[in-house]
Simulated scan of single mutants.
Amino acid sequence: MTAALDAVRQIDLAPPHPRHAGIAGTLLIEAALAAAISSDVTAAGDLTERAARLADDANCHDHDGVAFGTTPVDLARALIATWSGDHHLAVLRHRRAIGANGWQLLPAEHRAAHLIDIARAHLNFGDAGAAGQALANADRIAPAETRTRPVAREALTAALRAGRTTADVARLAAAIGLTRS
């Protein structure tokens, strides 16, 4: 969090450049996520709001390769809600974010990583089917993300234990060696 905020301060001191808002916003999101991991919900909220203002003021989504805009801010809000234990809010924010135009503009790995992370919120909310579907969708988007991240394997195992799964979730489980094909 400190490193990201120090970098934002340096950007604020530099002469204005079109990419600065996107870079500063991305750093603010990273700082907000770090604050949330450290259980500093107030700082996480404040930093996310700062990032949201930048996203609203500067339409800089994917400007020169900087994947920043309102959708990444909303995805961060969903993760912060997950880590704060408000799984209902996390799922609502997630659904809003993936319904936005910016979702498809994000890099495939970013979208898949988010789907893997939000699978835990679905599980904690009691919706193993949605968790499994999020993982199957992540695998369609970026298989390497889903098949190599331990958190994806853990979430898929939990979804499988919770009960019935769809065919695509069962295929994913077989593909990563959790069940026999």
Rank of each mutant, 00 (worst) to 15 (best):
R147S: 06
N137C: 03
L178D: 14
A121Q: 11
A138I: 05
A112S: 03
A113E: 00
V169R: 01
A158Y: 10
A90C: 11
R93Q: 15
D86P: 05
G25P: 00
L156V: 10
I116N: 05
E154V: 11
A152T: 03
W103R: 04
W83D: 07
A159M: 08
T82Y: 12
R19T: 09
A134Q: 05
T48P: 01
H114L: 01
A155W: 07
T71G: 01
A173E: 05
A43S: 15
D64N: 11
R77T: 13
R147M: 06
A43T: 07
L89N: 13
V169S: 04
R180C: 07
A162H: 12
L106K: 02
P18W: 10
L115K: 04
A144M: 07
Q10R: 12
H61M: 14
A78I: 04
L105G: 05
I11H: 00
N101Y: 06
L156I: 09
R171I: 02
T42D: 14
S39F: 07
Q104F: 02
D46V: 15
L156Q: 03
M1E: 10
A55W: 04
R161G: 11
I141G: 00
A24M: 05
M1H: 09
G102W: 09
A131R: 05
T70C: 00
A58Q: 14
C60A: 15
T157L: 12
P15K: 15
V169G: 02
A36K: 00
A24S: 08
A170E: 15
D64E: 14
D12C: 00
A58S: 14
P16E: 14
H114M: 02
R95A: 13
A44K: 03
L28I: 11
R93W: 12
D168E: 15
A119D: 01
P150A: 15
A4V: 03
D86Y: 00
W83Y: 10
M1Y: 12
D139S: 05
D139A: 03
V91Y: 00
H63E: 08
A136Y: 09
L135Y: 06
A174Q: 10
L89T: 15
L178H: 14
E145G: 03
H17C: 04
L106R: 03
D117M: 03
L79W: 09
A144R: 09
H110N: 10
A55P: 02
I37C: 11
D56N: 15
I29M: 07
N101I: 12
A32E: 03
Q133A: 13
T48M: 07
F125C: 07
L28H: 04
L172H: 04
A136W: 07
R180F: 12
R147L: 01
H110W: 09
A158P: 07
A24D: 05
D57G: 14
D56Q: 15
T148C: 05
D40R: 08
G45E: 11
A58M: 01
G45W: 06
D56C: 04
